[in-house]
Structures are given as C-alpha cells and as structure tokens.
Write a protein that binds this DNA or RNA. Sequence first.
DNA 1: AACAATCTTTACATTTTCTTTACCCTTTTC
DNA 2: GAAAAGGGTAAAGAAAATGTAAAGATTGTT
Lengths: 221, 221
Amino acid sequence: MKNILIVDDDINIGNMLEELLTKEGYQTTRAYSGTEALFVLSSKRPDLILLDLMLPGLDGKEVLPKITGIPVIILSAKSSVEDKVELLLGGAADYVTKPFDIKELLARITVQLRNASATASPSILKYEDLLIDISSHQVSVCGEAARLTRTEYAILKLLMQNPSQVVTKTLLLERLSEDTPDCMESSLRVHISNLRKKLRDLSGKDYIEAVWGIGFKMKEE
Amino acid sequence: MKNILIVDDDINIGNMLEELLTKEGYQTTRAYSGTEALFVLSSKRPDLILLDLMLPGLDGKEVLPKITGIPVIILSAKSSVEDKVELLLGGAADYVTKPFDIKELLARITVQLRNASATASPSILKYEDLLIDISSHQVSVCGEAARLTRTEYAILKLLMQNPSQVVTKTLLLERLSEDTPDCMESSLRVHISNLRKKLRDLSGKDYIEAVWGIGFKMKEE
DNA sequence: AACAATCTTTACATTTTCTTTACCCTTTTC
DNA sequence: GAAAAGGGTAAAGAAAATGTAAAGATTGTT
C-alpha cells in the first residue's frame, strides 16, 4: 500500500486530503510545517509528498531541495508562473494550484506513483556475499559488518547499483565530488585500493575489476 | 542533444513551439496528424512528445496508447477535468492547457526529460553475433563477453554505428586521436588486427572488411 | 589543543595497452 | 608480369594506467 505524506498547515485542506486519499486506498501521514516534514522524513520514506508552499517556519521552497528520491507535488495558492518554474526546475515533480479539482489531483498522483515505481531502486543491494542496506547505510561481507568510510561506501554502492556494468572514472569522480569538492583520479585509486583491502580481509575475494582506460565494475563470478 | 516531436495541426502554434524549443537547444521534429506522428515514431525515437488533442484523422486520445516508453505532454484547448483525468491515467506524463505560458511549458518539459534520463534505457548496437551495450561499455560475441581495449572498442563501435558504410581511415584516426593524440596509420592497422583476432577467437568469423585505399567496413553476411 | 578518522598527495612497482618496426602477403598499376 | 602501394600480423620497446604503501593535510570530536 502506497504511503503519501501531506504537508499543509491548513487543517481543513489537510483533513480533506487525508479523507480523500484514504478512501482511494492510500496510507497517509501528516506534517504541519516544513521542519516537521523533514523530521518525518528522517525516519520514514513515503512514496509521494504533497507539499504546500506557504508553511509556518521553514518554507516549502526551502524544504523541497532537502527531499531526494521521492516525487513531490506542490500544492499552492500561488499561481504565478515564476513560482511554478522555480519549483519545477528545483526538483518538484508537478505543480497544482489551489483550488484544485480532486479528480485531477488524484490522476496526477497516480502518474507520479506510476513513474516512481518504474524508477524504484531497491533498498537492499546484493552481490554474491556483499550486502548493502541503503536505508541504514550498512555493509556486510559474508555476514560480517564492514566498516567503510563515506567515500568507500559511495563507491561500492555505485558499483553495486550497476552490476555487470562499467562505471566510468568520470562518473565516479563526479558523484564523489558531491561530498568532497575536489577529488583527483589518484585519490580515487587509493580509495578503491582501500575498499578492496577491507572487502578482501573479510571475504578473501576481490570483487572489483578495473576496466583499463574506462573505469571499474563488479567482477563476474 | 534532446529531440522533441511536436504533434499539432495548427501551423502557427507548431511554428512557435519549434522556434522556441530550437532556441532552447532542443532538436525538433514535426507531425501534423495522428497518423503522421505514428509514422514518424516507426523510424525515430524522440526523447519527448508534445501532443495536441484535436488532430485531423486519428485523434490524440487514440494516438496516446500507441506510444510507449516516451513521455508525452498533452497540449490541449480542452480544459475539462474529465479529459485531463482520462489522458493522465491513460499514460500521459503531463497535461498543459492552451493557452499555456511558455516558461511553464519549458519547465514541465525539463521535468519530463529529467525523469526520463533517470530511467535511461540501454542503447545496444547489434550486428549478427556482435552486441555492444554502449551504456555499460560491454561487448559480447556469440554470447560471450569480449575483453577489448579502449581503442579496439572505439573502432568496433564506430564500424557498427555505420554498418554497410565504409569508415575512412582518416575518420578512424581522427576519432582515435581524441583519446591518444598521435596515432599513425600503421598503428591503426595493428589495432584492427588485434581486434579481428579477439573477435575471431570467440566467433571463428572475420567481421571486418578492408576497402582498399579508403578504410574499413563491417562485412556483409 | 590534542586526538582520531578520513581524505589527499606522493612515490614507486606492476600491469596493460599503444606504437613502432620489420617482414610477408595481396591488390593495383603500368 | 614486375614494380609499387596497400594491407595483415608478430614481436619488442615505449607509454600510459593501475595497485599499494606511506606520509602529509583536512576534518570533526572530545
């Protein structure tokens, strides 16, 4: 059953939405401010978020960029094109102006959930004896927990998300520099070396294969 | 560069969209009826489709279900909720009513292209028993993976992208020198020889044919 | 401020790939 | 048919990319 987070300080609209969505067979969660929404998200991962723009405290515009991986439909009384453009380009999946038609909203929710399930990424990655639990950020090798640094974790995750695929050095560097701004190729080599060593110490195997001139990939068994 | 198919029988709106999208850096293709749209799609795969509803002959509603795998934004003068719901649930990615704001449309196009690139489908080149998966940088010959060097991969890819065409030595050298600055013709010959050998070891066949004085091409079967 | 964990740089060994060279074969040209 | 030019392959040396250890720089924590 799909779970939808409703973020709106207006009790009436919130209740109406909750009742409507429940009747349609969705589970709902409520939040009444931006900060509360983020708090909820720190422990839960709903399938979709309905986000009002005018919120007490943290504004909807400020909340949006902090949400990743979950489609957000903006619900707003503001119908200015500038707002729409800003939020759509800022990561919103759709923008519906109040007052909205209930059936249209339901249809747009369906569209987003349809998209999301097509893109859905599993929360547990498995590759032979390697396991990554994305949500808890944990890695286990042959049943034992591995202590990886943030960078090592990011590298392994990227490789395991595309098994049997070559992950280019360029892509790796790009992703890693989201956390740490500058990362030379020499540095990447060292991280991979360290990662290999940790995995080897726990399993005896080498899971990572270099593809000369291109990048790295998980070894075929 | 992203390609957008504009399906609209209204020349003025179509021209306006084409000009606008071109200015934004998109490639555009035009179709003026539903049947023409489907005809275009039988040979081309644009990244996104802007579909008008009221079309001569085959209606937009009838065209939509025949489109799969490409996001469709409906552009329509009809603003009735029934239409919106029907089309959104019927597979449309978004629904924009005419008259629309240009900036909003561009933002919604960006959103759809953003979604689509996340779901990126593998692009595969095929030639008899040879397969290249461009996205994962893999080559398989008769089902078995081939270990090609960067240069060998580049040569094979170039040949397979233009099958039945002769790829000139000049062009090959030009492309190869993107990676490695200096590459003489003698060197190219050796690369092709090595490539042939690897393919031959896996398949028993020789796929590459020399065209005297000009360059190389894939052998006709 | 001292400490620990992590990341980056440096340096060098190792491995793979690329280019050159040499020699032989095939096709074209006269 | 002989000379010239184009193409195929093997082998060796040159160049480039990778693997790893160790030292220096950065960051965050107590």
